[in-house]
Amino acid sequence: MGLEDLQHNFLTGRLEDLVKWARRNSVWPATFGLACCAIEMMSVGAADFDISRLGMEVFRASPRQADLMIVAGRVSQKMAPVLRQVYDQMMEPKWVISMGVCASSGGMFNNYAIVQGVDQVVPVDVYAPGCPPSPETLLHAILTLHEKIRTGAIARRPQQPAGVERTAGWVPEAPNAVRVATPR
């Protein structure tokens, strides 16, 4: 039984807040640097921008210990199954940040070799624009993700909407219409 089966009374309300707080402050990213964006991701991890301030200094080499996949760089068609496998191997709850325009939409590589948007392969929570995004942009994306974890439901993802049949492959979900404001 998961926590999502409980009714919202006083106790679970507080507990939910506690769980969200704990999740928000220990999002461990998996190492998934694919191209030049990975350089900026590394600089976020280093002393200048130091994401250990946000409780996520450990880039886990094993997806089983990671909560967040920062897809940093362009994803080639051959890399897409690997990306999906790494995502599948991560433990719930898990989040994805699509870092840079190449990961988000193919960017300027509008050709047969590059996946046009990594959200065709994995569900993306936050998109960070830029080519590459500056460390601040990635930090902004991480803070947006924190805000999303804080305000979101504790259950993993909304159920498949009624009327949509499950196909053999992964079905992209309807885009989340909630616009998350900049956390201050």
């Binding site: 939409s105 959200d119 929570d125 936050v126 998109y127 960070a128 624009p129 830029g130 995004p133 500056s134 601040e136 942009t137 930090l139 902004h140 994306a141 947006t144 999303k148 885009p175 989340n176 219409a177 909630v178 616009r179 998350v180 900049t182």
Partner: peptide, 10 residues
């Protein structure tokens, strides 16, 4: 340069 989106429409 500090901006990020939670969906593609934004």
């Amino acid at each position: 340069f500090e901006f990020s989106f939670t969906n593609r429409a934004d």
